[in-house]
């Protein structure tokens, strides 16, 4: 049961949150300008590091706001918020 720091509500149990995977992956400005391979990269390919990972969470059962944090995927320790 991770303890996740919501920037708006404070530390809350993992069960209040929804996981959103890698952070900072923007929707392409002009999808039509992308090749099929580039579009596939956007759709399907995300980083998957062992160690620090900038990821997205949404406080679903609380303020319902999305935020980013950095968590270590090897230890589950939360390294930095935002």
């Amino acid at each position: 049961m991770l303890l996740i720091p919501c920037p708006w509500c404070g530390d809350r149990d993992e069960t209040e949150f929804h996981y959103g995977g890698q952070a900072h992956v923007a929707y392409p400005q002009s999808p039509d300008a992308l090749s099929d391979a580039q579009w596939a990269e956007y759709l399907f390919v995300r980083d998957n590091p062992k160690g620090e990972f900038a990821e997205r969470w949404c406080h679903n059962a609380g303020c319902r706001r999305w935020f980013n944090l950095v968590r270590d995927t090897a230890t589950h320790q939360i390294v930095v918020q935002r």
């Binding site: 995927t73 090897a74 589950h76």
Partner: peptide, 13 residues
Amino acid sequence: DPYNSYAQRGSVH
């Protein structure tokens, strides 16, 4: 478990 992890551990709930 929903999150990415290499820790070979999950959450008790």
